[in-house]
Structure formats: C-alpha cells, structure tokens
C-alpha cells in the first residue's frame, strides 16, 4: 500500500508533502515522492537539487515512514506521476493545487489538473496553509 506525492520545490509542493506524510502516518502506508521536470529550461525552480531530495528523504524517515524518492527528467510531469502511481499500485496521490485563471488553464495546462483527471486511484488535492509555510 503506497501513497504517491507529487512534489515541486514551492509552497504547493511543500503542502503536498506535509499532507502526504500525515496520511502515510495515519494509514501506515509507504511513501513515494515524485519530483520530476521536463528539463526544457536551463533552470527549473520546481525541480529540487540532489541535496534537497536527500534532506526530504531523511526528514520523512525520521517520522518512521518508509520512503522512496523518484527524481527524474521526463517528457511530461503529469504522466510521470501517474505512471509511478500505476507502477506502485498507489492507494492515493497527493498534489498541491494553485488557483489559475481560465486563460492560464487553457494556455499552460496544469500538472495537478491532469493528475486529478487521469489518475485511476483517489487523488487528494491540497492547498498551502496560508498562515504557515514551515516544512
């Protein structure tokens, strides 16, 4: 039984991480954290560096969770998340969602939206806590 967290290095990713970890503790399930990028720009701010991936892993393990990290360059981030979920037979996917205007949605698409629509397992969509941004 595994929970998949779609993680990006911003407040939405951190919210997903926090909620996902809480769910895993509650349900006594394993965690897979997916941090992927299309790699089509010189710098992708939502793509964590190796040190951060190690740090997150260590942090989650101190909570007594069994964690594995997926840190990849992929053709499509949403597809990558769904693919991992299917591989590990996930019971839940956790994504952070942010508000987008209708135009923004039409033009840019949204990883979270596509995960929510295309995933075969339940998806937990979370928002960052407006007051605290700690993890």
């Amino acid at each position: 039984m595994t929970i998949v967290i779609a993680y990006g290095t911003d407040q939405y990713g951190r919210a997903a991480l926090a909620h996902g970890a809480a769910q895993a503790e509650l349900r006594r399930e394993d965690l897979v954290v997916v941090n992927a990028t299309r790699g089509d720009s010189l710098v992708d701010r939502r793509y964590a560096d190796d040190a951060e991936i190690e740090r997150i892993k260590a942090e989650l393990q101190t909570l007594g969770l069994s964690v594995s990290m997926r840190h990849d360059v992929v053709p499509d981030v949403a597809d990558a998340v769904i693919e991992v979920a299917e591989q590990v037979d996930a019971t839940l996917i956790v994504v952070g969602v942010k508000h987008r205007s209708p135009v923004g949605k039409a033009l840019l698409g949204s990883v979270a939206q596509r995960v929510i629509l295309d995933a075969e397992c339940p998806v937990l969509a979370v928002k960052p806590d407006p007051l605290a941004d700690t993890v």
């Binding site: 299309r38 089509d40 499509d76 039409a106 033009l107 840019l108 698409g109």
Partner: peptide, 11 residues
Amino acid sequence: LGSRTLILDVG
C-alpha cells in the same frame, strides 16, 4: 524543439 503546448505556441 519539444514544446507540447500547441495553442500557446501558436499564440
């Protein structure tokens, strides 16, 4: 070159 957002590209 690998962009997959057709509407945005044309725009």
